[in-house]
């Protein structure tokens, strides 16, 4: 099918949807200012960050068939690495013999590496099993890290850790919301390009094969464990980078970054947008976070103040309906049959 659309080279519905989405996100700060809603820029920075975490989950969930329910762990670890390094830089102290830093290049690279390392350990253990075991185990290990950070009193424990400001990226002023938005935008686009190439590469074909029929892949001679673990680590690294960006966005990290509901939210974003599509999770992040932002206001304005705080009361059943009746996700609805990769 991919061969086919490639050969045609014509503008398909999918490319049209993608182009439209790209332009919309690229022009968003301008649109926000025209609408006189400048806070939307910061809100959408969050959307892009969540999208990145969701795309990284889609890589293993949608393409590798690994139902990881602990993806927030890597997001949170990435965020904490940035927070902890900034904390030590502010205090002038060291951690494990290393000085703290506010330099984005160092701090974010560390976040990616540490998240990847954590993913390697959790993945190596969890991938010894599959199915329901895998779901429960990834959830449990994420919960373990949650409790670990809760118990780390030097880094604020339950209350989390404030940062003095955003990291320093080659002297660019990241405290400006517009600048920060475009940083997130570039990071997400780069990550999408990377994952797009990845899922179509030889490596990507192997993990997609594993999702469809692992036994067959083994009989063809692929050591599937190694390939799945590698994908798991790459996804962990991507979530770690998203976490690093998130810490910079809020200038704050707390155990909530690793809470299991965060893992649930990331998974919902993937499903809502369309699993196994890479672009779907971006759509999912936009819709999910906009619902979170505006559903309470909508309830308020139609006189249902009672539901304002309890928007999830409605969202729960919506999620169930999506799962039962709309498995293609929003991107599938928008882009049609070619949305999903085989």
């Amino acid at each position: 099918m991919a061969d086919h659309s490639h050969r045609m080279g014509a503008i398909t519905r999918k490319t049209a949807v993608l182009a439209f989405g790209f332009v919309l996100l690229a022009a968003l700060p301008g649109i926000a200012h025209l609408m006189d809603e400048p806070f939307l820029v910061s809100t959408f920075s969050r959307v892009l960050i969540y999208a990145m975490a969701a795309v990284s989950l889609d890589l293993i969930l949608g393409y590798g068939g690994m139902v990881s329910f602990g993806h927030a762990a890597f997001f949170g670890v990435g965020a904490y690495v940035v927070g902890i390094l900034a904390h030590h830089a502010a205090e002038g102290t060291t951690v494990l013999g290393l000085a703290g830093t506010n330099l984005a290049v160092v701090s974010w690279a560390a976040a990616v590496l540490v998240s990847a390392g954590v993913a390697a350990v959790i993945g190596a253990l969890s991938l010894r099993t599959d199915g329901v075991h895998f779901i429960m185990i990834t959830l449990a290990f994420a919960q373990m890290l949650f409790f670990l950070f809760v118990s780390l009193e030097p880094y604020g424990g339950d209350d989390g850790l404030m940062m003095m400001g955003r990291n320093d990226l080659f002297g660019i002023d990241l405290s400006d919301d517009m600048t920060f938005y475009y940083l997130c935008f570039i990071a997400l686009m780069a990550f999408l390009l990377l994952t797009r190439r990845l899922v179509d590469s030889r490596f990507g074909m192997v993990i997609r094969g594993c999702k469809q029929n692992e036994r067959r892949m083994r009989a063809l001679g692929f050591p599937v464990y190694r390939y799945k673990l590698t994908a798991f680590v790459i996804a962990g690294a991507g979530a770690g980078l998203a976490g690093a960006l998130s810490a910079n966005h809020t200038e704050f990290v707390s155990p909530d970054f690793l809470h299991w509901t965060m893992s649930g939210d990331i998974m919902i974003i993937v499903i809502l947008g369309g699993i196994g599509t890479l672009y779907g999770p971006v759509v999912g992040a936009v819709v999910f976070l906009m619902l979170e932002e505006f559903l309470p206001l909508a309830f308020d304005s139609v006189g249902l103040e009672g539901l304002k705080e309890h928007w999830r009361f409605l969202f729960g059943p919506i999620l169930i309906l999506v799962v039962l009746f709309a498995r293609r996700g929003l991107f599938g609805l928008l882009a049609g049959r070619e949305a999903r990769d085989g």
Binding site: L198, D200, S201, R202, G204, M205, G221, F222, Y227, T230
Partner: peptide, 17 residues
């Protein structure tokens, strides 16, 4: 592909090879 050495190749499109 299974015969053609390891598959830790992440960039080139396999379907275009």
């Amino acid at each position: 592909q299974a015969r053609a050495g390891h598959s830790f190749r992440f960039w080139r499109r396999a379907r275009a090879e």
